[in-house]
């Protein structure tokens, strides 16, 4: 892998983002809207509980919602950012220029990872700051657990991103809607806003096979003051390893299939 070539691809996307007001706006608009909604839902629930004579145990638990929302956004944007980098080249009719440049597929993928990471950093920093100012929610209360949880969300997002990019490569822009839809397919199962044990028993094994489930369970444990149980971390990393390797294999397969069918050029000119 060549670092200068990866850097060149990342440079191209940074130009793209810093030159476009709609793209910059998109980085903030939805996350901030989400934050406002979940922030006020949180405030409301807190007031309901506070008004009761005997507030239920674990009242602070409601702050989960904001943490979950920010974490979900990290996962969602990791997925979306990788696929979007590829879509941008299709939209610009630039994809052929990229694929005839001396770039390895792995370099292209790593570049899309880094682009999504940059996008996430920008979005998440703003979200964390706003959550602090508006709702006194401090994500850094997660302490050092934040880092491994964050990394696992990234990995899972990247795995999903490779799958969607692979599908678009093979099925063309008709599959574009997937770029926005895929994360929401797993959202109900990934225990984002509620623990796994509220799901029907027979669904729980499926939920536990998703890396992000363990991240969200882990986050709630930390916010409850229980520390980060090692088993959540273990399963998140182990499952992510399987997901990333499988997704990379899938991407490779779709790429070769698209090449055989001459679809790389058609993506641009259709």
């Amino acid at each position: 892998m060549s670092w200068p070539r990866i850097r060149a691809l990342v440079l191209r996307y940074t130009f793209l983002y810093t030159r476009s007001i709609p793209r910059v706006t998109e980085l903030f608009f939805w996350p901030i809207m989400d934050l406002l909604v979940w922030g006020y839902v949180t405030l409301y629930l807190q007031r309901l509980y506070a008004a009761q004579d005997t507030p239920p145990a674990g009242m602070g638990v409601i702050t989960f919602l904001l943490g979950a929302m920010i974490f979900w956004d990290i996962l969602y944007r990791a997925q979306q950012g990788t696929t979007l980098a590829f879509l941008e080249d299709i939209w610009a009719r630039n994809l052929l220029n990229i694929f005839v440049a001396p770039i390895r597929v792995s370099e292209f993928i790593v570049a899309t990872y880094l682009v999504s990471l940059l996008r996430i950093m920008v979005t998440v920093i703003v979200l964390i700051a706003l959550a602090w100012f508006l709702y006194a929610f401090n994500l850094f209360a997660l302490g050092f657990s934040l880092l491994p949880l964050f990394i696992n969300l990234l990995f899972m997002g990247w795995a999903l991103g490779m799958i969607t990019t692979g599908l678009i490569m093979r099925w063309g822009q008709a599959a574009e809607a997937l770029a926005w839809g895929v994360p929401f397919l797993i959202q109900p199962l990934a225990a984002v806003f509620y623990p796994v044990n509220v799901l029907p028993v027979w669904v729980q094994p499926v939920a536990l096979a998703i890396p992000a489930t363990h991240v969200f369970e882990g986050m709630r444990a930390v916010l409850r003051g229980e520390g980060l149980p090692g088993q959540y971390l273990f399963w998140a990393f182990a499952l992510n390893f399987v997901y990333v390797v499988a997704a990379a294999g899938f991407f490779r397969f779709m790429y070769e299939s698209a090449r055989r069918r001459g679809l790389l050029a058609k993506l641009v000119t259709q």
Binding site: R5, R7, L11, F15, R19, A92, N94, A101
Partner: peptide, 19 residues
């Protein structure tokens, strides 16, 4: 094919020089 439309000409060429 085209080069990304919202970049300046010299920025596009710089990216490809780097690639």
């Amino acid at each position: 094919t085209a080069l990304p439309s919202n970049l300046r000409v010299r920025e596009n060429l710089r990216v490809f020089a780097a690639l």
